[in-house]
Design a binder for these strands. Structure first.
Lengths: 244, 244
DNA sequence: TTTATATGTGTAAAATGCACACTTAAAACA
DNA sequence: TGTTTTAAGTGTGCATTTTACACATATAAA
């Protein structure tokens, strides 16, 4: 192994020097923000209001700063746009094609976020250029953002089948139909109502309330909440896996 | 959204400036190299021969250069150490804790690699400090490398169950027992021989040769090869999923 | 010829996945 | 007040998959 291929950072005798400065790069964070309005899966995009690609849609993003790690940068970027923190965020993939950003070399770490659209009305901050798109008819995006979204959708699909992250996209109280709508949106296929309910119930992590949501039908639909403590206890004690 | 939070790279009117230079960082690539010797899953580590942490073990790594993307950097780093290219590589996760490298701020993108240990005897390059460890008794590593390895193992486990990547760790011809050993190592649990063979055969992507490996028992064991074309055709035509 | 060793092979029971259709509650309306 | 309308709510049988499990075989070495 050649000396110069060693990570200089692991060699205390070599300090910040030309070689390293030379190879420093700009690191960005881009966020794929998924939302759910109890009917359809959405994605939050912003419209570029400057050239080039003016009028084209894009993910929100920002640059990593010296005093934060990537997770923190993603939280900051998300909060800047939506005014919200306490949002489910997960690192997705790092994109580094040399010409991915024609302006200059930028490496971007993609994160995806899950938000309940209705509970989170972006009161605090005015974002004229931001818009929720139905995931099925989202527009073409700049750079490699389409690829990021594709990967995020795949990741969400996989996660939703093995972790109870779906509840991040729902209000605290929800109906079975809404939960099923969510899974149908994420998986992009119709599910059988009875089988779905049986499956969910067999997992034994929901609490059925006495309360009904009457807005949705004459009969009204029972509301449920996700019992997070119960879920976590099951995971810890029995190695339980949420599997849909 | 504040102007300074916009990604400057998306604004053609703002060129490389102080703000950006300020926020540039060093990007490293670290490789978790898994190997298999027909018996046990291994990991390739190098011993640091300089302070601090002299004598401690570490993943191999290097810095991203201006003229390459991360995948290329990982290939280069791997080739530098092992003299080999054409190795299965997959990006894992990006690590960015501020103090992860006490020497200086470094963000590291972890990759994992899969190698057949026996077919790849590192003739070309002398690496005194490199050593294959059985995955079960690998030593403690520097920085956050332990965490990287943990995540790589989890990823490998998941992938091995849904993609035929196991064959990357085996020679072209292998016995059923070797394949089972591999899966037992990856999944870290014993499997039933008959059920394993039935399952593999039902996937219908292996070709049983007339040839036997006589080194392994009195009776000898039939050799198999993975029929990659057949697998890819099935994937394309029937949406087949390799599922173990 | 015997012995030792790892290979190779099938079936039955259990668990899980999947398809499928009618009743019910309550509001709206006649 | 009865009839209609709408979505909610509920259980079973069949098919598939998964799991548990034990003995015969080929061959080299003694």
């Amino acid at each position: 192994m050649l000396e110069e291929d060693l990570k200089v950072s692991e060699n205390p005798n070599m300090h910040l020097n030309y070689y390293q400065k030379e190879d420093q790069v700009l690191l960005a964070v881009d966020c794929i923000i998924f939302g759910f309005d109890k009917e359809n899966l959405k994605i939050l995009l912003i419209k570029r209001n400057f050239e080039p690609e003016k009028g084209k849609w894009s993910l929100i993003g920002g640059f990593l700063k010296k005093n934060e790690d990537l997770d923190e940068a993603a939280v900051r970027v998300l909060e800047t746009l939506t005014g919200l923190n306490d949002i489910y965020l997960e690192q997705l993939h790092t994109y580094s094609k040399i010409d991915r950003d024609p302006g200059q070399r930028t490496i971007s770490v993609a994160y995806y976020a899950l938000i309940d659209v209705d509970s989170h009305r972006f009161d605090g901050i005015q974002i004229d250029s931001a818009h929720w798109f139905d995931i099925k008819d989202a527009p073409d995006l700049i750079f490699d953002h389409n690829e990021m979204v594709r990967k995020a959708k795949a990741r969400l699909r996989r996660r939703a089948l093995t972790k109870p992250i779906g509840f991040e996209l729902l209000p605290e109280k929800f109906t079975m139909r809404q939960l099923q709508n969510l899974y149908e949106s994420i998986l992009d296929k119709k599910l059988d109502k009875r089988n779905f309910i049986n499956k969910i119930n067999s997992l034994d992590v929901l609490v059925k309330l006495d309360e009904k949501d009457m807005s949705v039908s004459r009969k009204g639909a029972y509301l449920y909440i996700f019992d997070k403590e119960k879920y976590e206890k099951k995971v810890e004690e029995d190695g339980f896996i949420f599997k849909l």
